[in-house]
Amino acid sequence: MSIPREPLIELVGVSRSFGRGAGRVVAVRDLDLTVGEGEIITVVGPSGCGKSTLLNMLARLDEPDAGELRFRGRPAAEADVEIGYVTQSDSLFPWRTLLANVEYPLEIRGVPKAERRERAMALLARVGLAGFENHLPRQLSGGMRQRGNIVRALVYEPDIVLMDEPFGALDAQTRLLQQRQLQDICAEERTTVVFITHDLQEAILLGDRVVVMTARPGSIKLVREVGIDRPRDLDHIHEQPRFQHLVTELWDALRDEVLRAAPAVAS
């Protein structure tokens, strides 16, 4: 049983489409979802299912054209929430050192130099990047850059952290390490996370709940409580019956959608 949480994000009948006339494409349709404070929601779906559209609306880079998006009960545009955003590709500013990148969100908030240095350094050390703070992004490996990216999104302690397939481009071993680090940090900070991935296993091992989306127009096919206690042993979670059961159940749901999306992708 999960503890009832205060709703932080509420999507009520949210739809978004692009283009006009015959070229009109409905990206997402009738999304209903409530995300509680401190909850980690993972979203899986076939490619082109509107995951990015959903994320853009949550990031307030885009607005639904029907339905309502609320943060802590207030319309998204007026809500006083801070959002962290980790992109699919690494998006550290190449002209700033790692430290200056992580300090960036604090800098634009006018946090005094000594304090922002201290906060940035503390987080960098937590993800094993101490000693690399004066490196430029191009001098770091892909995995290090992505960790820097995540740290930059966490350093100002946002209410919600959005992650768009952050580990998609990493090799398997690096990904495992980063998943573990992410789990540790989130558990400690009690951050609310919406995590988009195409990797079902990753969705289950990181999420409190997993959302499976349908092929375009994207809507929510099913939502499952993972129900595996934290902290999770990511090395052996695959052996748990609950995990295996979820993989089978969610894959059955996802497979149909992937197959439905595939001809559209091929054409």
């Binding site: 990031a59 307030r60 880079l61 801070e82 959002i83 962290g84 955003y85 992109t87 590709s89 998006s91 500013f93 960036y104 969100p105 634009i108 908030r109 930059r152 999104a153 100002y156 959005l162």
Partner: peptide
Amino acid sequence: VDATYLRVATVMGAS
């Protein structure tokens, strides 16, 4: 300018 940088900065709250 790479749109990703602009998006990231916007979400982080830059004016």
